[in-house]
């Protein structure tokens, strides 16, 4: 691995974000985490625009996506990611408090790679976030940069 790909955490609640960061810190992957405070910011990051216009090019290793967020909610972000050929290969993990059936089925229908319900208990939460961060950010081999090109359909068709 030449470049360390960042982990994108979309979390509108600063406390949840802090707790998640605390969990990541325990496994020394906190420096890889970029926190976005709403869906619009996530899209700005992914499309390198706004405050992220000067960031290093390339897709994150994984996006942790909360469902309920201001401006653009999690499902909309998911939909945008999965319908864009360049962003489609990014693994998206829904990280949410909702256990509702409709959220689950909608998320998977839109192409979510995983769905994790945030446990109330801190130790469970910390374990979950840690394991998710380690699995998707370290263990999982992300798609090679430029893999998106293969999915492209010739414009003449």
């Amino acid at each position: 691995m030449t470049t360390v790909k960042p982990i994108l955490l979309a979390e509108d609640n600063p406390r949840d974000a802090e707790l998640a960061m605390a969990a990541m810190e325990e496994h020394h992957i906190a420096d890889k985490v970029v926190v976005c405070r709403d869906g619009a910011e996530v899209l700005d990051y992914l499309y390198c625009r706004g405050t992220f216009s000067s960031r290093q090019q390339g897709n994150p290793a994984v996006v942790f996506l909360d469902l309920k967020m201001p401006k653009v909610d999690g499902l909309e972000v998911l939909k945008t990611i999965k319908s864009d050929v360049n962003l489609k290969p990014i693994p998206v993990v829904m990280l949410t408090s909702s256990r509702e059936e409709c959220d689950l089925s909608q998320s998977y229908a839109l192409g979510a790679n995983a769905y994790v319900v945030k446990p109330v208990e801190f130790h469970q939460f910390i374990t979950a976030v840690k394991e998710l961060g380690v699995f998707w950010g370290v263990i999982n081999e992300p798609p090679p940069e430029g893999s998106d090109q293969r999915g492209r359909v010739p414009a003449s068709v």
Binding site: N13, R15, D16, L19, A22, L67, K68, T96, S97, S98, R99, E100, K118, P119, V120, E121, F122, H123, F125, I126
Partner: peptide
């Protein structure tokens, strides 16, 4: 299910 759980998670989290 969504909103009431979050503060509980925070209470337990920050206590820890």
């Amino acid at each position: 299910s969504h909103d009431l759980r979050a503060p509980l998670r925070h209470i337990d989290g920050y206590a820890a």
